[in-house]
Computed example of a mutant assay.
Amino acid sequence: MTTTDPGFREAQYDSVSVLMSGQGGAYPYGNTVIARGSAGTLVIDPSLEVDHDPVDADAVMISHAHEDHIAGLKHFTAPTYVHDADLAGVRSLRVLIDGFGIPPEIRSFAEKHIADQFDLPDGRPDAIGVPSEHVFDLGDISATVIHLPGHTAGHCGVLIEPIGFCYVADIDLTSFGPMYGDVGSNLDDYLASIERVREIDARWYGTFHQKGVIEGADDFRTRLDAFRGVIERRDARLLEFLGEPHSIVEIADHRLVYRPHVEMPFVGAVELRTAQLHLDRLVRHGAVLEVEPGRFSRT
């Protein structure tokens, strides 16, 4: 690796380089991917530590509409692309924040946090929507958009071929586990997306947060199993709690995602959305019943 900026280190994987976060990649930081082809250069998810366009990019791909993935976008003038389902959130910061599904009383906190931490513009109104399987032709390499919804409705990865680099964005393999607490989140979609990336045989797998780059499909799939296991543990925790009837608010207060000592304004909204998604899924599978209006118990 060679130092290219005080904020990150550049690691090379054939014609793909990753600007590895100098802060370890935990939120609000992340790892930015650059694919250099003979006919063009694509930047994916310019992070908070990217304070200029280091490659004179021909195109920028945003994996999904979250503030940490567009943090460095203001430094790029190249055409910006995002999946159609998350396009409105990249075009408008207001729409991006709407997607959190937070109550009005804490919206001002979210707006202040984003302003203080990221100093984002009001949006990228000229962003271009693309469908799944959209291909960036970079000459001797190509970058194909892979729709991986669940985290957000438009969350995507990018497969760079023929070198075999698969960027999986926020399927980030952390011990914290999957996040699906937004309005556009979907637990069943997230599980399906995990299975989709499991089927991709690549040489390298890149994540936006923390883990960075994993080499080899076997190691990646082992880590992916552990990541998916967090969802299963949340299911088990919920079923244990529903040994007696409880409401959705009581389930959220019990917490499936955050530990009891974590106190941040958005925690309640995330817990409520997560609890609802798990509850809906377990009801569909017959593991939970609504025993009286608004109160649920395991079968």
Rank of each mutant, 00 (worst) to 15 (best):
G229V: 05
G164T: 01
S247D: 11
Q210H: 07
W204E: 11
D218W: 08
V257Y: 13
R255Q: 15
R196P: 01
M179G: 06
D170P: 03
A226N: 11
I200T: 05
A217K: 15
E244K: 12
L238I: 13
L148K: 10
M179I: 10
P178I: 03
E161C: 01
R228C: 11
G212H: 05
I248D: 02
L148R: 04
A169H: 02
G229Q: 07
D235V: 05
I171C: 02
V213G: 14
L159S: 13
G212T: 01
F176R: 14
C166R: 08
A252E: 10
C156S: 14
M179F: 12
E232F: 11
T222N: 11
S193L: 03
T207E: 00
D182W: 12
F220N: 00
R233D: 13
Y190G: 02
F176P: 04
E215V: 13
I231G: 04
H254D: 14
P149W: 13
R203Y: 02
L256S: 09
D170L: 02
D253N: 12
G181R: 06
V168A: 12
G216M: 07
E240D: 15
L191V: 09
N186P: 03
P162W: 00
C156V: 05
T222K: 13
P149N: 09
L242N: 06
D188A: 15
D218L: 13
C166N: 14
R221G: 12
S175Q: 12
V183G: 09
E215R: 14
L256G: 11
F241I: 12
D170R: 04
L187G: 00
E199D: 15
T152W: 07
P149F: 08
I231Q: 03
I160D: 00
V168P: 10
I248T: 14
C156D: 04
R196E: 11
T144V: 10
I231H: 09
Q210W: 03
E240A: 15
V257S: 09
F208Q: 07
F165L: 07
L224Y: 04
C156K: 00
E195V: 05
D172R: 03
E195I: 03
H246P: 03
A236M: 09
V197N: 05
R233T: 14
T174N: 06
F208Y: 13
V168Y: 08
V168N: 06
F220D: 02
V257A: 11
Y258M: 10
E244G: 03
T144D: 06
F220S: 05
H254N: 15
E240H: 15
L238M: 15
I251A: 09
R196G: 01
I146Q: 10
G243S: 15
L239P: 05
Y258V: 01
A153T: 05
E250G: 08
L187Q: 02
G150T: 02
A236I: 09
I163N: 02
T144N: 08
D219G: 06
L256V: 04
V197S: 03
D172Y: 06
V145K: 00
F176W: 11
E199P: 12
G184P: 07
L239W: 05
Y167A: 00
F227D: 05
E195W: 01
I194D: 04
L256Y: 07
A226V: 07
M179N: 04
L224W: 03
E244S: 14
V183L: 14
N186Y: 10
V183E: 10
G177I: 07
Y205N: 02
L173K: 06
